[in-house]
Design a protein around this nucleic acid. Structure first.
Lengths: 330, 330
DNA sequence: TTGAAAGCGGTACCAG
DNA sequence: CTGGTACCGCTTTCAA
């Protein structure tokens, strides 16, 4: 089913059908009516590949995330999608599961699709990929907690400030031995997040910290706690890399009969909805995911008013709930 | 950047470059090397639109879900994606947020993309859309709890059996006044899910039920409980349409000082991971989401061995955890 | 206001 | 083993 068949049925040229499809105002209304009728009778659906090939443009933006299962990423994705739709753009999503080969594949895929813009909400990004992206002339926005990149709009959350707030708070509550519950992506030699935690702790001499990691899931958080406690280390507070792993940690503690916050304090990060709904409600750090989504769309989709470009840094807000309390008396 | 430029640089024809790209074995290795070199130097990425236009095929399958935010949908999606990738297919996803206009838009989009297959994991599906889909000759798999469709592979969970198990169990525990916590999509005149619950309750004369609904989110579950209790009805057990709304319900009850399960029993549905991690862990009904995902891929992607087609009905398993108990003494 | 025709970037068939 | 070339389905001048 193609333009030509519609054209034939409506007794016009393919050019005219095309005009109707793109509602060019030049078409005489009687002609338009015939064409519309033919389209409906034939249940014609334009081939989008042909369209973007011929037009040279795509009206779709790509979004790559590390783990859509984590509501943190999902919330950003959802905001981008809503904004994009509102501006007449489509969105194609790719999930990397924190695997760098998958990141490479996904980026190539997006380039191959000739997306109008690309948002990368991922923790890892090889320099050669950046170059490839530059070469392809695709507008890119990068969200991370890490290092700024060149030639690309960057949105960063000041992870360091966030973690410092958490550490300071726990310290003020009398905690001295801290556990850090990460996920696999924070492993690796010089991970920014891990380093940040270590640095934040190192500022305060009386503090001690030990880390463990597993997957970025509920189950992963649980397993990481098992790993940590298996070392014999006895923390009085657990700093979790995000809310999901924190909820996983909560469960493991519950099953061990360790009360939160009486016996152990726990903190999350991101302030996803679940952090209010779990028990006990999590003390966490709020990352404005909708705002991030808006900024991303703003800088990816061309429009009249100029937008701030370059680097944007977000200062996260500390949120105290029920999962933290004074360190237990020894 | 296109085939021709690569061809020129490698001093071969576009046909040969194409062969290299599709690793046809006929190319002499020295020639191939030249081409590969040119491709890398130019950082060439084939235009996927041109490719699928010329090839006539797409190697991508479409997945439409009602609410990706709900892990139930996400788990199915993820399985499909993994299976598809394993077979060399891409996946494009669309989320309808339970809105039927969005469903229409998404289906049209998928047809326009000429996807090799389409999975619709949604609760609503207008007959005219089915026809449009048939017309487009797109293989389709439909997952639902509702009525079987024609000309389409159907996967259905026996929702009725699942709900009956829940109702029977609560009845055996002495519960007589039941609340049903739904979400907006179950509203509307003859919703299958709602009707099923009513039917299941009607089998047992001593039972009484009242329903309330809000969004299919944590917050929605919470709000629905508020709505239900505001009517003055005093249930001793809450049957929730799924685990997410159940976790939302749990929170509202907790804040009202209503203990679960001592004062009120709560059941979920789906058995998503969160149902084990919330507190108290949910009594729920297991829906084999991975299995569903596998079946979907199986029937969408062509392969040698014949697959069962037509209708597939799944009998869900009841899972007892900590959120249900004997009805409180009056 | 409408039609003819030249691409868009690949694929695949046919020769050589 | 490689090159020439006719499409794939649509958009977009250019003329009429």
């Amino acid at each position: 089913m193609n333009l030509e068949q519609v054209a034939r049925r409506a007794k016009v040229s393919t050019a005219t059908v095309s005009r109707v499809l793109n509602n060019a105002s030049v078409v005489k209304s009687s002609t338009r009516a015939r064409v519309v009728k033919a389209i409906e009778e034939l249940k014609y659906h334009p081939n989008l590949h042909a369209r973007s090939l011929a037009g040279g443009k795509s009206k779709t933006i790509g979004v790559i995330v590390s783990n859509l299962e984590n509501p943190f990423f999902f919330d950003i994705y959802k905001t981008i999608e809503a904004d994009a739709h509102a501006r007449g753009y489509e969105v194609v999503m790719a999930n990397t599961d924190y695997r760098s080969e998958q990141l490479v594949t996904s980026i190539r895929l997006m380039i191959g699709r000739r997306v109008a813009g690309l948002a990368a909400i991922v923790s890892e990004m090889a320099p050669e990929l950046i170059e490839e992206l530059n070469e392809s002339r695709t507008p890119v926005v990068f969200y991370d907690v890490g290092t700024p990149r060149q030639n690309i709009t960057n949105i960063r959350v000041d992870y360091r400030r966030g973690i410092e707030k958490v550490v300071d708070y726990l310290h003020s509550l009398g905690h001295r031995r801290l556990g850090f519950i990460g996920h696999h992506a924070i492993l690796g030699p010089i991970n920014e997040r891990m380093k940040t935690v270590l640095d934040a702790v190192a500022r305060i001499p009386s503090l001690e910290v030990q880390a463990a990691a597993d997957a970025d899931t509920l189950e992963g958080g649980r397993q990481a706690v098992r790993n940590l406690l298996a070392t014999g280390f006895t923390p009085t507070a657990l700093i979790c890399v995000n809310d999901i792993t924190a909820v996983g940690a909560l469960r493991e503690l519950r099953e061990r009969g360790i009360r939160v916050p009486q016996d152990m304090s726990v903190t999350g990060f991101d302030n996803v909805k679940l952090s209010e709904f779990c028990f006990p409600a999590l003390t966490t750090v709020h990352i404005p995911r909708e705002r991030i989504g808006h900024i991303i769309c703003e800088s990816l989709i061309p429009h009249d008013v100029k937008t701030a470009s370059g680097e944007i840094v977000i200062d996260p807000e500390f949120v105290v709930r029920d999962s933290t309390g004074p360190a237990p008396a020894i």
